[in-house]
Design a protein around this nucleic acid. Sequence first.
RNA 1: GCGUCUGUGGCUCAACUGGAUAGAGUAUCGGACUUCGGAUCCGACGGUUAUAGGUUCGAAUCCUAUCAGGCGCACCA
Length: 531
Amino acid sequence: MKQRVSAILREKLGREVILEKPRDRSFGHFATPIAFSLAKELRKSPMVIAQELASSFEDTAVFSSVESVKGYLNFRLSEDFLAEYASWALENPAEFGKQQKAQKILLEFVSANPTGPLHIGHARGAVYGDTLYRLAKHLGYDITAEYYVNDAGNQIDLLGLSIQLYARENILKEAVEYPESYYRGEYLETLAQGAIEKFGIEIFKDESCQKELAMWAKDEVMKIIVKDLGDTNIFFDTFVYESTLYEDWDRVMAKMGEGVYEKDGKVWIASEAKGDAKDRVVVREDGRPTYLAGDIVYHNQKFERGYDHYINIWGADHHGYIARVKAAVEYLGYDSTKLEVLLSQMVSLLKDGEPYKMSKRAGNVILMSDIVEEIGSDALRYIFASKKSDTALEFDLSEFKKQDSSNPIFYIQYAHARIKTLLAKAEVSQEDIAAATLKNLGEQADTLLFDALLLPEVIEDAFASRQIQKLPDYLKALAASLHKFYYDVRIIGTEDEAKLLKLLSVVALSLKTGLFLMGIEAKERMTKEDD
RNA sequence: GCGUCUGUGGCUCAACUGGAUAGAGUAUCGGACUUCGGAUCCGACGGUUAUAGGUUCGAAUCCUAUCAGGCGCACCA
């Protein structure tokens, strides 16, 4: 709709026009403050300009009225236009809100180390990434969801060590002395038992077996991670393993050219010259690559694969890494502005009002799977999607475990289910509903219809601004309009039944599409929790 | 100390990226069903947008300073 209006304005004025939704619906469906900016150029008052523009629109079929108020230009869409659009959407439900954006995008997210199950902090980035992915797909982007698996380096060695230590203490019943850092958690029991089946109990006795154990274990952990993600409707197109990238090492280093140099027996990247705070070590004195080394080869590989745009979602604690990775990208000869790093802020937990510190190595983490079991995937996704990703999120665990009406996901799903119930009770036929024309239904119905047809704009805006919370905000507001409408207007058995059901079908389509884009199921019927 | 993100009703967040009277939810209080699902609806209370300047027709939004907080500042990932 907005596109349509924009196009008309563009043609009329020969320029791009800012179109906004007036705060107060009585002003119309869309509005523009264009007269204010034209005032300077034309040396006329905004009121006069707006008035002149308003009167020049009278012949358009799309608008029922164009008015100037205090310098604003307010547009009201015609019933014909809205009714036609609604019919089209119901006939082509899969196309509603879709577009044909041509850009090819690589979206990398989660990328948690395969050393343990995902915790609640990972979940936020996962939800953020997957929602962006769904939005982009809907908008027609050629987007790839990618998981970068850090399966090389210290943390993998540590995983092998941790399993051995765990098994020696708990299975072999030996007295073990724990080093400063190692992983803990229930999953080690699962891994240890699996290792016995795979290798036999001997694998725990020889320290030289740690490597072999680790290489097997990290794949097992990845299976757990992929399952946890799948349980919340999050899926990846591609996985890239750090361990497979190093065969390219020499070639990539050569490609870096003057970007890398040797000093004190180490290899450094000259990132300071590209805006980083200082140069960074890429290869240590003993020849082991640092974490950054993997990212350099990985990003080279990404850019060689040739996308138009790259989005990385990182935890906010990695923001110091942006400058150095971008430096590397530039030395590799690519445009670093094509790399967009989005940060997912920390999720800080409170337990009984006290900060609850999580540490993967200490094992006192809140697992994503625990929360999903507790409140369900839908609620988890809704909660994380409804907060701006770059603000810290804080909540009390006890609060989080509550399952009551304060969770808006129920409110939205209830709205959808209500419509479905009405449709099931309809006294008119499907054909009557499809054939009905959405006109002369009164102002409240017109408003509801317009609100429901606004979804495409919300999708586009949410993705363009990378602010996915706009979608849940919109759905909540639409659900509220529906509930109010339902309360005010009797539907079944009335003269306008077919029309009204058609209107509600559009609302249902909008809710269902929006929920799908959030990875949430639109329920046909609400069932009370018994326990 | 340096960098970075963030400060909006008691709490959690909006405000279309500079536009019309700063809006929702929640909490609290009060009201609405012999009616299509009350997991609903209506109303009340609640704001100097952290503070002080500045930019202009117009600022929660942009600039400067100050204050407060999160996160970074590794040859760990």
